[in-house]
Simulated scan of single mutants.
Amino acid sequence: MGIRYYAYAFDDELTGYALADPRSFIGRDPLADAWGFPPGASSWTGITGQALPERDMLYLDKAWSLLQVITRPRLLGESPRPAYRMFEGDVAYCDLGWDPWVRAIAPEEVASIADDLDSIDDEIIRTALSRRSDSDIEYACDYLTIAKRFVRGLAADGRGFAYLIG
């Protein structure tokens, strides 16, 4: 199945709870939420699309790692782009697979992330992904557009989000 990215929005008044326990803001079955099937379903029939409104959930499939490459520091000692905060992390591998990475982003961080995402243009993407195929670049661009829309909406509403890579 692969390692995927899911983010769930939360309202400003829940920020303290989200920062203390971001996992509690992640859906019980994120893939079901993203693909629109009942949690725990053993059959993939009846997929209807994302179960939650786009303003409440972001699903980046496996593109998170490409978006991480675009936003991470280019040189040793260089600071990452503000948007890297929303893609940073990786699973912790263990004997039985992996443990997910989970983080909460406070509402006051969201506007700078949104502004940074908006500043990422085709040249930045192509430079960062220069060793990737055209299909990888297109895949990253498609999901970057979705991420921009999600984060820009959160910034407008004064909301934060918790995300899971796993």
Rank of each mutant, 00 (worst) to 15 (best):
M1L: 08
R4D: 07
Y5F: 12
D11V: 11
D12H: 10
D12A: 14
L14M: 09
L14R: 10
T15N: 10
Y17S: 09
A18Y: 03
F25H: 07
F37Y: 15
P38W: 00
P38G: 05
G40Y: 07
G40Q: 01
A41E: 01
S42W: 04
S43W: 01
T48V: 10
G49E: 01
P53S: 09
L60W: 00
L60V: 07
I70M: 08
T71Y: 08
T71W: 00
P73S: 13
L75M: 05
L75G: 08
L76H: 15
Y84K: 11
R85E: 14
M86C: 10
F87S: 06
D90W: 08
D90Q: 03
V91F: 12
A92K: 14
Y93L: 11
Y93S: 08
C94L: 12
L96D: 15
P100M: 03
P100Q: 06
W101L: 06
V102Y: 00
R103A: 14
I105Y: 02
E109C: 06
V110W: 06
A111N: 11
L117Q: 09
L117R: 04
D118V: 02
I120R: 02
D121L: 15
E123R: 15
I125L: 15
I125V: 02
R126V: 09
S130W: 12
R131D: 15
R132F: 14
R132A: 11
D134H: 10
D136L: 11
E138C: 07
Y139L: 01
D142R: 09
Y143G: 09
L144M: 04
A147K: 04
V151A: 08
G153D: 01
D157W: 11
R159T: 02
F161R: 00
A162W: 02
Y163E: 10
Y163M: 07
Y163T: 04
L164I: 08
I165T: 03
